[in-house]
């Protein structure tokens, strides 16, 4: 690639300025969201605003609906048969449940990292280029650069740069998960959803992913589901506490962990249940 000077677009400048202001733009606005699995009412009247360039953590005991919620944000939940929803989720001002909204388009803008690392049984290179390729980018030069940038962005470039053509299954679990993050970065998403991304990883790999989240926050809005409260406290700006499908409390992370307003939040974060 030519070494060219970065030319910020107007949009980029605006975003940049926005991020400096205290009131950041809203990425996701959830209003009155209800979700049923058949008869089971899994999410009840959820109202949440998620802001740009922040890490929003979602915590709560298992079965509280936190995974369901994050999967609703990119409509992956629709892969489960018999799911019904009501209410709205606006992504950048547009209701994602709108019939004219294509899920593919939404998911191109909103990346997802899953609980278990799930690289494709292909080479590292092919894993990263998967997204760009399915969206029609075929120029080898551009793809090469996307691979390098994405792997660098996911802090795994140095570990894999000499074996890009090897099968991704040869990587360790932690490396696989960072590869999955790189794969997600390759389409330059706006938001990254992370569904308990470290639950299958060892402590050192977990630490690396956490550091990475801190780094990615500068450029992306991140929503992370975690069952690990310390993790939420370490990496997030805001935290939402879910219980039985409801949002009990949603505020700044330092606040929720120091002076929770709700008794149930306090019980949970002090380890009395869950």
């Amino acid at each position: 690639m030519n070494a060219t000077i970065v030319k910020p677009t107007i949009e980029a400048v605006m975003n940049h300025n926005n991020s400096k202001q205290s009131a950041k733009a809203i990425v996701y606005k959830t209003s009155g969201l209800n979700l049923w699995y058949g008869e089971n009412h899994a999410l009840k009247e959820i109202n949440l605003d998620i802001h740009e360039n922040e890490v929003t953590a979602i915590i709560g005991p298992s079965g509280c609906g936190k995974s369901t919620y994050i999967k609703t944000l990119n409509r992956m939940i629709e892969l489960v048969p018999s799911v019904k929803t009501s209410g709205t989720i606006e992504y950048r001002g547009r209701n994602i449940f709108n019939k004219s909204y294509s899920v593919e388009e939404l998911r191109t803008r909103v990346g997802m990292v899953f609980q278990k690392p799930n690289p494709f049984p292909k080479s590292i290179y092919e894993n990263v280029t998967y997204g760009p390729k399915i969206h029609g980018i075929k120029d080898k030069r551009i793809l090469d650069q996307i691979v390098e940038e994405s792997l660098k962005g996911a802090a795994i470039w140095d570990e894999v740069k000499d074996r890009l053509n090897e099968n991704a299954f040869g990587l360790s679990g932690g490396q696989q998960q960072r590869l999955c993050i790189a794969r997600c970065l390759a389409v330059e998403p706006d938001v990254i959803l992370m569904d308990e991304p470290t639950s299958a990883l060892d402590p050192i790999s977990t630490l690396k992913v956490e550091e990475l989240v801190q780094e990615l926050k500068k450029d992306f809005s991140i929503i992370i589901v975690t069952h690990n409260m310390q993790q939420a406290a370490r990496i997030s700006d805001k935290t939402a506490f879910f219980l039985n499908g409801e949002v009990i409390e949603f505020t700044n992370t330092d606040k929720i962990f120091s002076t929770p307003l709700d008794k149930r939040t306090e019980d949970y974060i002090t380890g009395r249940f869950g």
């Binding site: 990119n74 992956m76 892969l79 899920v103 593919e104 388009e105 939404l106 998911r107 191109t108 803008r109 990346g111 997802m112 899953f114 278990k116 799930n118 690289p119 494709f120 049984p121 292909k122 998967y130 997204g131 399915i134 969206h135 999955c180 794969r183 997600c184 389409v187």
Partner: peptide
């Protein structure tokens, strides 16, 4: 999980079948 990964990237159903499911 492989299907989810592909859908999560914004791939369509047929793209997912052709590029992920069938090769596997």
């Amino acid at each position: 999980e492989l299907r989810e990964a592909s859908f999560g990237m914004g791939a369509t159903k047929w793209q997912t079948i052709l590029n992920v499911v069938l090769p596997a």
